[in-house]
Structures are given as structure tokens and as C-alpha cells.
């Protein structure tokens, strides 16, 4: 019996690698990712505006309290990794953290299956490798910018620290950092969604619930890890050796 190579997809009814394509200027874009990321951006910006519109010295009301707690949390992450000059990097780390966190939770909490697209389905933007790679490359660009701004051209001196023999490994590190950042986030989120869909396929009710809660937990931990690592990389490149 010959099974066609994509039979597994039909058996499991999982939609991996199917996208809702938009053709713009000859490029195909993954439309479902854009739609959900816009929703995420809208939510984050909306919460920030609500939190800061009627700002008072003593925090009042739900939104200002919540957003102040979030800002303090992000400041703590940044401070613990970068040290005394952390203020400059709080917006970047905070945006990364909030975007990833809200994406992961939206992907897990909202029943996206109810909204039908012509092809593919809506899900967390972070379960598309393009999103996570772009976030990771932004992080790379930022730590290069931070290092060059702080130390000028002597930033490249770190490549021959502690000995010039380590030069290839130090260069390789610049490639493995975004690779591991993006694969970690992408793999975790996709793995959670796949586990949930496979379990739902086998037992539709109650049994997948603990895994869904685990997915929420893993989503928040992954957002924290991504933010912490980005801050650590930035801190590593702006810290003074001498």
C-alpha cells in the first residue's frame, strides 16, 4: 500500500505549513500572522494608552496599576541583566516581552478555530518561524547597535577576547544567538499547539485542559526567557571590560 507523503496531515487534520497568502508586490505574505500580530499590537498599545491617559502620582484605577506593575517587572528584568545603564533598553525589552507574551496568550486563549479563513488558520503569531526570526534578528541588530554606540570601533575587540584563537567561535556565536532565540520560541509555541490539537483529536473534552494550562504557563515563561536573553545579550555587549 502506498501512502502519499502528506497523508499524515490529512489523518491528523493539523494545519502545519498552510498559510493564508497575501500577494503584495510579488512577495507572498502569511496573512494570518499579520492579522493576529496587528490585533496584538493594537491590544498592547490600547492598554498602554488606557494606563497612561489619566495618570496620577498615586496610581489609581485598574489600568494604571496594572501597567505600572508591568513596567516595574520589565525594568527588573532589564536591570538584572544590563546593570546601571538599563534605562535606555527598557522600551525595547518591554516591547519584546509584551508582544511575545500577548501573542502566546492570545494564541492559547482565543478559540481561533471559530473564525474561518480561505486557507490556513489564525493562531499565535509566534508559531510562525518568520515572526520569531525577525524578533531574534532585531535583538541581534540592537546588541550590535548598543555595543558600537558605547565602545565605538573597539567593540570588535571582543572577538579576540580572551585569545585570538577563539575568533571563529566568537563570530559563530553571533549566528547561534538569533538561531537559538528564534527556534526556542517557535518550537515551544508550535509544540504546545500541536500537542493540544493531537490530544483534542483523540479525546475532545477535559483531557486537553491541563495541557492547555501548561501551554499558558510555557507561553509566559518563553516570553520571560526571550526578554531575559535579549537583555543579557545587550548587557554583554555594552558592559565595559576594562
Amino acid at each position: 500500500m502506498i501512502i502519499p507523503s502528506n497523508a499524515l496531515i490529512q489523518i491528523a487534520d493539523l494545519e502545519v505549513g498552510k498559510h493564508f497568502y497575501w500577494e503584495i508586490f510579488g512577495y507572498s505574505l502569511h496573512g494570518q500572522v499579520f492579522l493576529v500580530s496587528w490585533l496584538v499590537i493594537f491590544l498592547v498599545i490600547g492598554a498602554s494608552i488606557l494606563g497612561t491617559s489619566t495618570i496620577t502620582e498615586v496610581p489609581r484605577g485598574l489600568w494604571q496599576n496594572t501597567m505600572e506593575a508591568v513596567v516595574e517587572y520589565v525594568q527588573n528584568i532589564t536591570k538584572s541583566q544590563i546593570g546601571k545603564d538599563f534605562k535606555e533598553w527598557v522600551p525595547f525589552i518591554g516591547s519584546l516581552f509584551l508582544f511575545i507574551f500577548v501573542s502566546n496568550w492570545l494564541g492559547a486563549l482565543v478559540p481561533w478555530k471559530l473564525i474561518h479563513l480561505p486557507e490556513g488558520e489564525l493562531a499565535a503569531p509566534t508559531n510562525d518561524i518568520n515572526t520569531t526570526i525577525s524578533l531574534a534578528l532585531l535583538t541581534s541588530a540592537t546588541y550590535f547597535y548598543g555595543g558600537l554606540k558605547k565602545k565605538g570601533f573597539s567593540y570588535f575587540g571582543k572577538y579576540i577576547q580572551p585569545t585570538p584563537i577563539l575568533l571563529p567561535i566568537n563570530i559563530l556565536e553571533d549566528f547561534t544567538k538569533p538561531l537559538s532565540l528564534s527556534f526556542r520560541l517557535f518550537g515551544n509555541i508550535l509544540a504546545d499547539e500541536l500537542t493540544i490539537s493531537v490530544l483534542t483529536l483523540l479525546v475532545p473534552i477535559i483531557i486537553p485542559l491541563p495541557i492547555m494550562i501548561l501551554g499558558l504557563f510555557a507561553g509566559s515563561i518563553q516570553a520571560l526567557i526571550f526578554a531575559t536573553l535579549a537583555a543579557a545579550y545587550i548587557g554583554e555587549s555594552v558592559e565595559g571590560h576594562h
Binding site: 502545519v16 527556534f183 517557535f186 509544540a191 515563561i221
Partner: peptide
């Protein structure tokens, strides 16, 4: 928890390889 998540990521790399072999295999037409 933080370090467990780091270790978890190593398994996830294996999973990414497995998933790309099953769903996005470059060697089958």
C-alpha cells in the same frame, strides 16, 4: 523554572527537526 525552560529548549530543537521532517520534508515531492 528559568533553567528548566532552557533545557526544555534542547528537546524542542529535536522536535523542530522532527516536525520539519514530517510536515515540510524537502526530500519528498
Amino acid at each position: 523554572l528559568l533553567s528548566l525552560a532552557f533545557m526544555e529548549a534542547l528537546t524542542i530543537y529535536g522536535l523542530v527537526v522532527a516536525l520539519s521532517l514530517i510536515f515540510a520534508n524537502p526530500f519528498t515531492s
